[in-house]
């Protein structure tokens, strides 16, 4: 998952980025002012935007309004030091999904960030379940038919992204966009290696089953190809293919 952090206070931004990377393992891009933030948000490759309100260049509320004017559905978590219900009501009405008042608890920020990403992808519960594959996003653990699968952090992040979109073909480019921040060199073969390892580990846990990740040559990857199209099972609902 990739998070855009728009915060002008350098030290706070450093801490938040470190916490979001270390904790839930998100890729974090940091914008120091409103205009850069708006510019980066325009790429529409983020699963969450953490937005400070008092920003140089363009204030947080304007960034939010521009985002929603583009019909961008990315969840937005506002960081505010301002007091008052009116402020919060105005923010939520302008399209914010949640807010945190400074000084906030880092653990709470991470929990809210996860919840917002989950909700943004249509999942209500932190444990996702597709065709016997269970991903616990709190513990960052993966089980296949009850068997614990040990994954590297990157493999877990690939799976976490895919399990939010079962049966949907996810391109390598999309995976790259959502798993790495701007500081990474974009080499699509890195993804290939990680997906290959992931598939091996998942299938090793249940050798007799069908491969759970299908490679669509030249198009991308698809999780749980055998899932019935209107099946009642999954805890997450599929999004239309972009």
């Amino acid at each position: 998952m990739r998070v855009l952090l728009v915060e002008d206070e350098v030290r706070l931004a450093e801490n938040l980025a470190a916490a979001l990377r270390d904790g839930p393992g998100f890729a974090v891009d940091w914008a120091e002012d409103g205009l850069t933030g708006d510019d980066l948000a325009g790429n529409a490759c983020y699963d969450l935007i953490v937005l400070d309100l008092m920003l140089p260049g363009l204030d947080g509320l304007s960034v939010l309004k521009r985002l929603r004017a583009r019909r961008d559905p990315t969840p937005v978590l506002i960081l505010t030091a301002k007091e008052g219900k009116d402020n919060i009501v105005a923010l939520l009405n302008a399209g914010a999904d949640d807010y945190l008042a400074k000084p906030f608890d880092l653990g709470e920020l991470i929990a809210r960030a996860k919840a917002l990403i989950r909700r943004g992808k249509g999942a209500a519960h932190p444990t996702l379940n597709v065709l016997g594959l269970e991903v616990n996003t709190l513990e960052q653990s993966v089980r296949r038919q009850g068997v614990l699968v040990d994954l590297s952090p990157t493999e877990y992040r690939v799976l976490e992204y895919l399990i939010h979109r079962p049966r949907v073909i996810v391109s390598k480019r999309e995976l790259l966009e959502h798993l790495y921040d701007y500081n990474w060199e974009h080499h699509s073969n890195v993804i290939e290696v990680h997906v290959s390892n992931l598939r091996k580990k998942l299938d090793a846990a249940l050798p007799e089953a069908e491969p759970i990740i299908e490679t669509m040559r030249g198009r991308g990857y698809r999780l749980a190809p055998g899932l019935p199209s209107d099946g009642p099972g999954p805890a997450s609902t599929a999004e239309p293919v972009r």
Partner: peptide, 10 residues
């Protein structure tokens, strides 16, 4: 508040 937020988050 921002300054305290920095300290707390650190």
């Amino acid at each position: 508040k921002t300054a305290v937020a920095v300290q707390k988050s650190s």
